[in-house]
């Protein structure tokens, strides 16, 4: 058995990440319990059951697929943090990708692990602090942030983000990117069910398709 001194850095990331995630999970479960005790109230159990039946199966399935898809991209430390703090595809992952690209390190190297964890940790801290400021200043901020003038800008955050990120990655990997980008374009244009609400489900599909396509191209020596 390895003692504390023999743990590698990566082993310690997994150990610490597991402790943190289980702690946060227990605290999240404790929140409704404490609220119930303080206000002497019980939930509507039938409502909980019906609500869960309507929500949980799809979210759990998507959650499992998202977890498997995102772990290789986020790295170990980044995964433990991102799955606690959320907003992965619209914030944490692009932030990590940009940091890896700027630092010119590979995601699977230890340097890559360090860079992506730092980027995701900083992003999580800044997000939490901005949200705290937003909550404290909610009264003066609401008319500004809900203004009709600014609304179109915030509605288009994802296209703006993936325009900047996409042009870098697609241009660097043009042969690899052409087929998956075309496939997704055709699917999103011609399948009405695909929209902002379903883009998360299409990420694993895009990833699996690209891996298969990359493998075929690689075996044929085209990449």
């Amino acid at each position: 058995m390895k003692n504390r001194k023999e743990l590698t850095y990566m082993d310690s990331v997994h150990r610490d990440g597991t402790i943190w995630n289980i702690t946060v999970m227990m605290i999240l479960f404790a929140f409704p319990v404490v609220v119930g005790i303080i206000f002497s109230a019980l939930p509507d159990w039938a409502g909980v059951g019906k609500g869960l039946i309507a929500t949980a199966p799809m979210y759990w399935a998507v959650g499992v697929i998202e977890t498997i898809t995102y772990i290789p991209m986020l790295g170990a430390g980044g995964s433990y943090l991102s799955f606690v703090t959320g907003n992965i595809s619209n914030l944490k992952l692009p932030c990590a990708l940009n940091a890896l690209e700027n630092a010119d390190v590979k995601a699977q190297s230890e340097e890559g692990e360090i860079i992506s964890t730092i980027a995701i940790a900083v992003s999580s801290i800044v997000t939490t602090l901005i949200i705290i400021v937003g909550v404290i200043l909610i009264v003066p901020l609401t008319p500004l942030l809900s203004s009709e003038i600014l609304a179109p800008a915030f509605d288009q955050m994802l296209p703006a983000l993936f325009g900047g990120l996409g042009v870098v990655f697609v241009s660097k990997n043009f042969k690899l990117a052409i087929a998956p980008v075309l496939l997704m374009l055709v699917l999103f244009v011609f399948v009405p069910a695909l929209n902002a609400g379903t883009v998360g489900i299409m990420v694993p599909i895009g990833v699996v398709f690209t891996i298969i396509y990359a493998r075929i191209m690689y075996k044929k020596g085209w990449l």
């Binding site: 990708l97 990117a177 998956p180 496939l183 695909l194 990833v207």
Partner: peptide, 12 residues
């Protein structure tokens, strides 16, 4: 391929 797969979904 992982990164491009994710980006392609959002471009679509």
């Amino acid at each position: 391929a992982l990164f491009i797969g994710m980006i392609s979904a959002f471009v679509g």
